[in-house]
Structure formats: structure tokens, C-alpha cells
């Protein structure tokens, strides 16, 4: 029983980290169609921002979450304004450009912050473990789980219930028609890109106390994020939520009953098989073509 509960919590915890990392990517890809290979570097920059705010200004992790979101959103906004907006409808070029931005971000961090692993402190109030149905779990992991769900709900609310969200959905369905109704697609895209980058930054900051902070940390996250988005369906927020949960539980269980190496291979295999029979992913937005 104890182990069973532990395993469910583990799966949820892995899933929540996947959700955090994938959310920004899903929004950017779902709305603008840009395959953002620099997404992992946005995550990495968020982690470094947490480290920087902590070492330079003595700001705790919780207090720095809002500044980090704003910083990374600003960064995303600039990247969109300077590079991405010239490359819409040229998917191959955006892949190359975002890849290049990622490499530059990595090297810039290496040159300024140095190559060594960095340390971000876990908030004192969340560093103990708590008891759930006889199983102990890290309070910080639970905090990430709830925060990830909260951020998802916020994103969902913006998407479904605001004027901005309405325009967003209109553009996603048909950009030309939406533009002819007076929606400024360029501005919506830029805001979306900034929001996605901000989310990625938050993800980086939040995982930094559990994992390590290094200039290359983004590479693994971008792969995970793409797996989530591809499995969930590229235009469905609910799909992102569901597929994070599925992948989290699946890799948690497989790793428990075999080991992490095999779990990773099997999960990847399962996704490949699924994509073969359901290329659009598990969930699809209903569109009138």
C-alpha cells in the first residue's frame, strides 16, 4: 500500500515537471506553429535567473518566481520581435534559427556565469517531507505538483475565458480570416511567445532545487517537452495535461519495476508506436476545415 501510494505520487511528480516544461512549448507550437528548439534553453535561463537572483540579491526561490517569469517573458518577446516574426510560415528556417538561439544562449551563460554546476537553494519551508496515506513524499515535489496544476488552470482560463484567448483561438483556427476581422495576429503571436518563454523560465526555476543547474541542462528538457506535446496532440491544452500525466506515471512505474534506462527506451517506443497509428496525438482540437 505504502509503495503503491509512493509510486502514484512519483508518477504525478514526474508528470507535473513534464507539464511545467511542456506547457510553454505547447502554447507556442499550438498557436504560432513555431517549433521552438530553444525551449530547453529558456528553461535553463529560468534556472540561472533563480541562481542569479539568489546569489546577487539574496532573493529566495518563491520570491523570485514572478521576476523570473517577467524576465523570461521579456526575453521571449525580444526573440520573437528580432528573429521569429521574420520566419513565420518557414518552418525549416525557424527550426534552424531557434536551434541557433539555443546554442548562443548556452555559450553566453557559459561565458558569463561559468561552466560549473550551480546551486539553487530549496525554500526552507518546503524542504521537509510530508506523510500521505502512510507514504512519505517531499513537500517540495507536492508544491511543484500543485503549482503546475495552478499554472495549467491559469493558462486554460486565459485561453477559454478572456478576450485575448478568444482572439488566440480565432487565429489558431484560421489566421487569414481572423486578421480580416481586425485581429492583430502579429501582436497576439508575440504575446503568446513571451508567455510561453515565461512559463519555460518558471519551469527551470522550479526544477532547479531538485536537479542540477548547468548550461546544458536544457537539452534533456526540450526532448521531454516534445514527447509530451507530440503525444498529447499539438493543438490541445488538455492533451498536454493528459499526456504529461500518462508519461509521468508510465515512466515512474517502468522505472520502478525495471530501471530508468529501460523505462526511457520503452516510453519512447510506446510513443513511436502510438504516433504510427495516431499521428495527430491522443487529443485533437475539433476544427472545421
Amino acid at each position: 500500500m505504502e509503495i503503491f501510494v509512493s509510486q502514484i505520487m512519483t508518477g504525478l511528480s514526474i508528470g507535473s515537471i513534464l507539464l511545467l516544461v511542456a506547457l510553454g512549448l505547447a502554447i507556442i507550437y499550438g498557436v504560432t506553429g513555431v517549433i521552438n528548439l530553444a525551449h530547453g534553453e529558456f528553461v535553463m535561463l529560468g534556472a540561472y535567473a533563480a541562481w542569479f537572483l539568489q546569489t546577487q540579491f539574496g532573493l529566495g526561490l518563491l520570491a523570485s518566481l514572478v521576476p523570473i517569469f517577467l524576465l523570461l517573458a521579456l526575453f521571449g518577446w525580444l526573440i520573437e520581435a528580432l528573429v521569429i516574426r521574420h520566419l513565420y510560415d518557414r518552418p525549416l528556417d525557424t527550426i534552424l534559427a531557434t536551434w541557433g538561439i539555443g546554442v548562443m544562449a548556452q555559450q553566453a551563460i557559459r561565458l558569463t556565469a561559468g561552466g560549473e554546476l550551480r546551486y539553487v537553494q530549496m525554500p526552507e519551508s518546503l524542504s521537509q517531507s510530508v506523510n500521505i496515506l502512510g507514504a512519505t513524499d517531499s513537500a517540495y515535489r507536492l508544491f511543484i505538483l500543485f503549482l503546475a496544476l495552478g499554472l495549467f488552470a491559469l493558462t486554460w482560463a486565459i485561453y477559454r475565458h478572456t478576450n485575448f484567448g478568444l482572439k488566440l483561438r480565432a487565429i489558431t483556427q484560421n489566421r487569414a480570416v481572423a486578421s480580416s476581422f481586425g485581429i492583430n495576429a502579429g501582436r497576439i503571436y508575440r504575446t503568446t511567445f513571451a508567455y510561453g518563454a515565461g512559463m519555460a523560465g518558471l519551469a527551470g526555476a522550479l526544477v532547479s532545487p531538485l536537479k542540477s543547474v548547468s548550461p546544458e541542462m536544457g537539452t534533456t528538457y526540450v526532448v521531454d517537452a516534445f514527447m509530451v506535446v507530440v503525444l498529447g496532440g499539438t493543438q490541445s491544452l488538455m492533451g498536454t495535461l493528459a499526456s504529461s500525466g500518462i508519461l509521468g506515471e508510465l515512466s515512474g512505474y517502468l522505472a520502478f519495476y525495471s530501471n530508468d534506462t529501460i523505462a526511457k527506451a520503452l516510453v519512447l517506443l510506446a510513443i513511436i508506436v502510438l504516433i504510427r497509428f495516431r499521428p495527430q496525438g491522443l487529443f485533437t482540437a475539433r476544427l472545421r476545415a
Binding site: 509512493s6 509510486q7 512519483t10 514526474i14 515535489r141 515512466s251 522505472a255 530508468d260
Partner: peptide, 20 residues
Amino acid sequence: EEYVPLGHSEFSSVINKLKA
């Protein structure tokens, strides 16, 4: 005796095994 992929950073399943 168990091996995790190089660069692996998610040890929650390993920790469950340690608890068991």
C-alpha cells in the same frame, strides 16, 4: 544493481526502490 542513463535527473523511482 542498477544503471541510469547518463545525465539522468529524475530519481524518484529509484528512491521508492530504496525505501522498499
